[in-house]
Design a binder for these strands. Sequence first.
DNA 1: AACAAAATTTAGGCAACCCGAAATCCACGC
DNA 2: GCGTGGATTTCGGGTTGCCTAAATTTTGTT
Lengths: 229, 229
Amino acid sequence: MPTLSMQDYAKALYVLEQRQPGRISTSALASYLDLSPAAVTEMLHRMAKVQPPLVDYRPRRGARLTTEGQRLALRMLRRHRLLERFLHDVLGFPLEQVHTEAERLEHAVSDAFIQRLAAWMGEPKSDPHGHPIPGPDLQPPDAPGRPFRSLAPDARAQVVQVCDRDPEQLRRLAALGLRPGQRFRVLERDPYEPVFRIRLEPQGTEVLVGPRLAAALRVEPLATEASSS
Amino acid sequence: MPTLSMQDYAKALYVLEQRQPGRISTSALASYLDLSPAAVTEMLHRMAKVQPPLVDYRPRRGARLTTEGQRLALRMLRRHRLLERFLHDVLGFPLEQVHTEAERLEHAVSDAFIQRLAAWMGEPKSDPHGHPIPGPDLQPPDAPGRPFRSLAPDARAQVVQVCDRDPEQLRRLAALGLRPGQRFRVLERDPYEPVFRIRLEPQGTEVLVGPRLAAALRVEPLATEASSS
DNA sequence: AACAAAATTTAGGCAACCCGAAATCCACGC
DNA sequence: GCGTGGATTTCGGGTTGCCTAAATTTTGTT
């Protein structure tokens, strides 16, 4: 509901570029952020015009983060994930609520706040959804696995990351018993838009599974911390 | 630096009305918030027009909070002071920095956040400056003492509240050894704009002392937790 | 009571962000 | 090689908050 800032756009560009490397189109960003393409075009112009520029924007051929823009995105991602960790672990917010709360907070906290909070919490390395938290140096964290690997029925899998942008879905997933770290065997699925990352048991590969997963994917929970293979 | 909202105006009106009961003039609010009178006039109009109205505004004769406006102010004050407590006690922010940080955070946190934070911290009753924290019911906290009592030289006093709006001054005061709870004997002062509340030792009365205090007031630190009388 | 000074409000502008509609551009099919 | 549909950008508007300058009311004199 609050109006979005350059930071939000940078974060979105970073996430989208992770999914699908290369330039991000105006419409892709617009639909991800749920804004009109016109609004995105304008903002991209602004982001290309500030000093230092945050994006390399070429009209009609999309945008891509500059090094500076990437640092900004990673700074916001670090804030977001650290805050989620705090909200969940310390204040006890349920998993479906931490994203929305962190989304508002990440714009209000200072670097000093984040530095102190991280130290106080013992420098956590991942958020409660399983996403890695960028370090203070703002280096891109290891991308654990590539998106869009195939997830065949009957494969065994473990949830590595859960997308935190859709509370409704998080609730449905929780109802299915899907939590980070949880292992599964895949029974059936509809390969569509990626939403969360799953590690396949035998090969150790990872995949992203789509938003319609709750409806399309059938899994069989296995023991959580079972031995390997 | 960020633009102010109705919440900020409500908080300011509440604080000013505490100091000096009655309608608050446009210029008093403008100088307190460091804005042009024109900006204040506009916002007062908006606050009188929303449903339910937050202020009772009569052109050219100032404004006063409605019950609804007062509740808003107290909600923000509760957030602010609770956050200051957290920043200081948990994250270890120095006293001079907590105000600025809380000022930004108080707009980003939800009621659920505040409810959980307060519970987690054990429902603290005052902020690190000594201001009382309004309860979840948002009843006006006891106003401890009336402003503008006279503070005669040679009186013994104890700092009850320290104004948190001026970091520079907080630093100077800290240098003088002035902290909440600290007792003093007053040696000399210039009675001017109130800044912090001091409890006089023999009478138990309280006064507010002005921003130029560091330059004008001379006090003699006494034992902090000495016996009564 | 009449005025000038002080306080306040109105008017005109600016900066961020957003939207819908109209104008453009590009690329693919024929 | 030429349409044409889909993506993108441009244009005209709208909102919130703030500012300066000008207009207006109130206040405090004398």
